[in-house]
Design a protein around this nucleic acid. Structure first.
Lengths: 190, 190
DNA sequence: GAACATACGGAACAGCTGTTCCGGTTGTCA
DNA sequence: TGACAACCGGAACAGCTGTTCCGTATGTTC
């Protein structure tokens, strides 16, 4: 399966990237209710051009989300190699929240709520969860995080922080203060 | 100012209540994107009847939200009279999250994001925050909650929990487990 | 530079939304 | 019971949305 696609025409390739960039910007501003017209206008492109590249709005959004999430997953590899597993865990938690604040829609990926798994986000969502789980296990083995913390609660906490940060545009200071309390609850009790 | 309104006709009064009940149910199901038609249908009433009672969709939603929030505020008075200020604080936090899970839109009231303050939600939002603050201060004076917890972070945590619980329909078990970690972070460190 | 597949833009379509309006109905009160 | 204001339902309007379609333009290839 998987017919080998002929390379795109040069202008088509250029437009495809413009659309993806514009979609990322507009979604960061308007969230998942961003309109196709707004994206087309921002990309300096007609509506038809978007639909040539992405069969549906959901497919376009999925492409944006997958891009973004994949980048975060890649960053995690650096964290996994870090010396201090505890710091790596908390740093990555923070990084995810920061990304959510800036670009929205991250909470959905973590919980698969509100995005259509059929659109292809399921894979990246699973990868993301795997990465988080590995960071968690390493931090627990190092004694930096409570042994009784499991993935469901961790994902719930992460999604909660992302949702609130996205929606209320947490300032850097509020984020630091708020997460500090959450992290204290996750740390091994002395 | 404030012309004394003549009492409503009997059927009008009945319809007004039907509409409010229907709106609460439909909003609990569809969130803030519930449509006026869905509410009208659920109330067994025409569209015009809704607009006779509430000038705009925002006004109707505001009425629903104010109702609900006022009930929660009233409940807090009981908590404020409780023996154990620490338990009262954590119980009320939990109660708010439970209510959000069932009926949505509560996170908005806590932070005034996404709801129009002009629509009259500002008062109830302020009252809610005052009640929470009094519970916090009492719990801190009793030594049950960390002294360095301030209102902005507390509201951020509360809104975060409400948003995630609303959106992902936290089960009773997940809620208990997740909030347990949050609460451990808020408790006075031994 | 000619010829052709490929890609473009945007008008047009279908379906949703909140809101307005008005002809018909119903509660109320004398 | 009659008369009238108050109220009702739902069709109609304006404006948004995602998506389709096709005449035109452009990159590519020989």
């Amino acid at each position: 399966m998987g017919g080998e696609a002929r390379p795109l025409r040069a202008d088509a390739q250029r437009n495809r990237e413009r659309i993806l960039d514009a979609a990322e910007v507009v979604v960061a501003r308007d969230g998942l209710s961003a309109s196709m017209r707004a994206i087309a206008q921002h990309a300096g492109v007609g509506l038809g051009t978007i639909y040539r590249n992405f069969p549906t709005q959901e497919a376009l959004y999925a492409a944006v989300i997958i891009d973004r999430t994949q980048r975060l997953i890649d960053e995690a590899d650096t964290s996994l190699a870090a010396d201090d597993p505890g710091a790596a865990f908390f740093d990555y938690f923070t990084r995810i929240v920061v990304d959510a604040t800036r670009k929205k829609t991250l909470a959905d990926v973590l919980t698969q709520a509100g995005v259509d798994p059929k659109a292809g986000t399921a894979d990246v969502s699973r990868d993301m969860r795997n990465v988080i789980e590995r960071l968690l296990v390493r931090a627990q083995e190092a004694g930096a995080v409570r042994q009784d913390l499991r993935m469901p609660e961790l994902l719930a906490l992460l999604a909660a922080a992302c949702l609130a940060a996205e929606r209320n545009q947490w300032s850097e200071e509020l984020r630091a203060r708020t997460l500090a309390f959450v992290f204290d609850g996750l740390r091994s009790q002395r």
